[in-house]
Amino acid sequence: MTIPYDLLLNAVIAGLLLGGFYAAVTAGVSISFGILDIVNIAHPGFIILGSYIAYIINIRLGVDPIVASVVMAPVFYALGSTIYQVYYLSFERRGQEALRGLAFFFGLLFITEVGLILVFGVDYRYVDASYIGPSLHLGNAHFPLRLLVPCLVSLVLFTGLHLFLTRTFMGRAINAVSQDQLALQLMAADPIRIKRVAFAISIAIAGVAGALLIVIQPVEPSVGREYIGRIFAICVLGGLGSLPGTLIAAMLLGLMESFTSTFYGPSWSPAVSFGFLLLTLAVRPAGLLGR
């Protein structure tokens, strides 16, 4: 079988653009799971919540979904802050995060999904924006703007986050808290406050990623479940807590999924991420750029 050149080229482009978007989706988990060691499996729930909020604002007020999500980010920040506080008080402080903390986040994921089903039903929802229909053509290469815009926003977000974590005082404090909490306390910094800020940032990013998601594809409440495998596969493959690793892993997964759905059919693509995850865990649990 000869693979048509155009098809291959466009599969690569779609994969890279998709990968850029996956990077934004995973960035939040990279902070919460990779750096803070909080297994926030409710993360996709917050992403879908972000999608629906962007949807409501878009339908009611006609605001661009991505702009709407940036405006809503402080609300998600506050939500994340509250949830971390409850998580810390109820589980982390008592050393019960392994079993009950996980069950808590699972419950949150579940409540978000069922709550959205009850309010909006299981219909697919989509948004209106000028860049959703057309594509950019460069010779044989097609760049669908629907994928290109989220990818660019996501890369900006990702670069900003990387600079924040490596250049600012707070970012370095967040990295420090993952290395030695006690040492941080000895320097008169409150590790709980720093962790709260970091977790809140991760949820705020989830909200923005949700808006990108609803630009890329129509959303219904249970879409989040497909992302659990993807997010954690990317996070583990990239190496826990390593943002550059996460970006590379996201691109890899995007490419793999794009090839699978182009050459074998889209119904197989959810299996790719899981294969990736198991392979990584079996061969190199530290990930590509792991510490």
Binding site: A98, F274, L278, L281
Partner: peptide, 28 residues
């Protein structure tokens, strides 16, 4: 065997993903 040698969280995540993948297999 694949995931239990690592931290507990990995096992939990892998089981979550297992449901999605088995469902994909059955659908196809």
């Amino acid at each position: 065997y694949l995931t239990l040698r690592l931290r507990g969280a990995f096992f939990a995540i892998a089981t979550l993903a297992l449901a999605v993948v088995l469902q994909t297999l059955i659908i196809n």
